[in-house]
Design a protein around this nucleic acid. Structure first.
Length: 476
DNA sequence: TGAAATGTTGGGGCG
DNA sequence: ACGCCCCAACATTTC
């Protein structure tokens, strides 16, 4: 009668459909997490592994508080599940579906291999609304965000989140499993301090962050969200990626906040933030409909685009040594914390794909390895959007000016100073483009260009012209 | 969720 | 007083 609950990117107990299904079936519940080190492509990146380690630790503690555990196993999921079903004489398997191409193929293999032996039931907690349930009047998938958003607001009525189970029936005997350390998720060299210092990981921390932001931060989100030097965004993305909180819970937290203030609808102040949650939804739907876009451009006219081969440029971008402060600050924030403000993500992505002309996949792979919120759907959408080859993509001529963006969105230079201490003593007027600062100002601030901080690696005006020429040629 | 080039307007300095 | 020019501010077009 045992039901296996296979945890994937849904590392929480509240509002967890498979867990609820398992409880309703009665009988023992066997929570399971599988780590597959052989997994390719888009194997979990290094920063994400750090997060995963701590999130699994938190999940294990929560389950222990319910008199249960999480069983850890290592290997290809279909083999692990088959062996475990055999060992435990389990009768059912429940899990949440995922929308990434490799995960959907995996689910299909599991259904073929185990469907006759196990009662398999799945949940769709990864999204607010199933991709098949939201389409244009011509029954096509949406490729443009705004109509997607409008339609979703009309039809999407996600059910109220479920409470976590109060207790779980444990199996009579626990099968042998791996320890968390056996998974080898933490790096040998201790570079993960920046991540663990920057984040509280796990379901409880996610709930606290959500509650705090809905109560205090969301009202100012529309105006604050573009300023990376201001604490104006929720930073919920890694929690959402690992399913420490579900999109449904976010949706309802906003609605509940409105109701508590006597409003029937979502307050206008919070709409801008929900809109971002729906960008995540849009990305998931796009990936479900266009699975090849993780590695190939959605727009066919980009199939043979002349990307520039520039390993040195790529390396300088990765290390935050381009000489453009806003770009370097972003790349250093990423390296240190595993996260980057979204405005700055757009700026650095534009710099890589337009100024340097480097293939968007190189950027996508770097983000994949270094972001704690690395999410295949979001990452694919974001990079293709910036490069101009994706859904609802930026028009080819949209090239961010890193100096202008910096002056506009970090006018005092507070973000730059935080991540580029070498420039901290420069006045606001000179910090965005230090190579244009008067020599006396540089000297007074203790900045020797090329020594304390790099000289700019290129001329943005010339790079922009070259990018426009490349891009214009690629247009249909 | 862009930026630069180009066009237009109107206030103010100045001869 | 008047016309001229400059240029900031804003609008429009173009890439």
């Amino acid at each position: 009668m045992t039901t296996i609950v296979w945890f994937r990117r849904d590392l929480r107990l509240a509002d967890h459909s498979p867990l609820r299904m398992a409880c309703e079936r009665g009988g023992p519940v066997l929570p399971l997490f599988i780590w597959d080190p052989t997994r390719t492509p888009w194997a979990t990146g290094a920063a994400s592994r750090v997060w995963l380690h701590h999130s699994l630790h938190a999940l294990a503690q929560s389950l222990e508080a319910l008199g249960s555990r999480v069983l850890l196993r290592i290997g290809p999921p279909e083999a692990v599940l088959a062996a475990l079903a055999e060992e435990t004489r389990a009768t059912a398997l429940v899990f949440n579906r995922r929308l990434e191409p490799a995960e959907r193929e995996l689910e299909a293999r599991i259904a073929r291999r185990l469907g006759s032996r196990l009662d398999i039931e799945t949940g769709g907690d990864a999204v607010l609304i199933d991709p098949a349930a939201l389409h244009t009047a011509e029954r096509q998938p949406y490729r443009v965000f705004t109509p997607f958003w409008r339609r979703l607001r009309e039809v999407c009525r996600p059910p109220s989140p479920a409470s976590p189970p109060r207790r779980l029936v444990a199996p009579a005997t626990w099968p042998a499993g791996a320890t968390l350390a056996d998974l080898g998720l933490l790096p040998r060299l201790g570079w993960d301090r920046g991540i663990t210092d920057s984040w509280q990981i796990g379901e409880r921390a996610a709930a606290q962050r959500l509650d705090a932001f809905v109560a205090d931060g969301a009202a100012d989100y529309a105006v604050q969200r573009d300023f990376p030097g201001v604490d104006g965004v929720s930073r919920l993305s890694p929690h959402l990626h690992f399913g420490e909180v579900s999109p449904r819970q976010v949706w309802h937290a906003v609605a509940a906040h409105a109701a508590a203030q006597g409003q029937m609808t979502v307050p206008e102040t919070h709409v801008a933030w929900l809109r971002q949650l729906v960008w995540r939804e849009f990305a998931q739907h796009l990936l479900a409909h266009f699975p090849a876009t993780t590695d190939a451009p959605l727009r066919e006219d980009f199939a043979h685009f002349p990307w520039v081969e520039d390993p040195d440029g790529l390396a300088r971008w990765q290390r935050g040594e381009t000489g453009f402060p806003i770009v370097d600050a972003g790349m250093r924030e990423l390296w240190h914390t595993g996260w980057m403000h979204n405005r700055v993500r757009m700026i650095v992505a534009s710099f890589l794909t337009k100024d340097l002309g480097v293939h968007w996949l190189a950027g996508a792979r770097w983000f994949w390895d270094t972001l704690v919120d690395a999410d295949l759907a979001n990452n694919t959408l974001g990079w293709q959007w910036t490069a101009g080859c994706g859904a609802d993509a930026a028009p080819y001529f949209r090239v961010f000016n890193p100096i202008l963006q910096s002056t506009r969105f970090d006018p005092e230079g507070s973000y730059l100073r935080r991540w580029l201490p070498a420039l901290a003593r420069l006045p606001a007027a000179d910090i965005h483009a230090p190579w244009q600062a008067p020599p006396l100002t540089l000297a007074a601030a203790g900045v020797r260009l090329g020594v304390d901080y790099p000289a700019p690696m290129l001329d943005h005006g010339a790079a922009r012209t070259a990018a426009l020429a490349r891009l214009k040629r690629a247009q249909p």
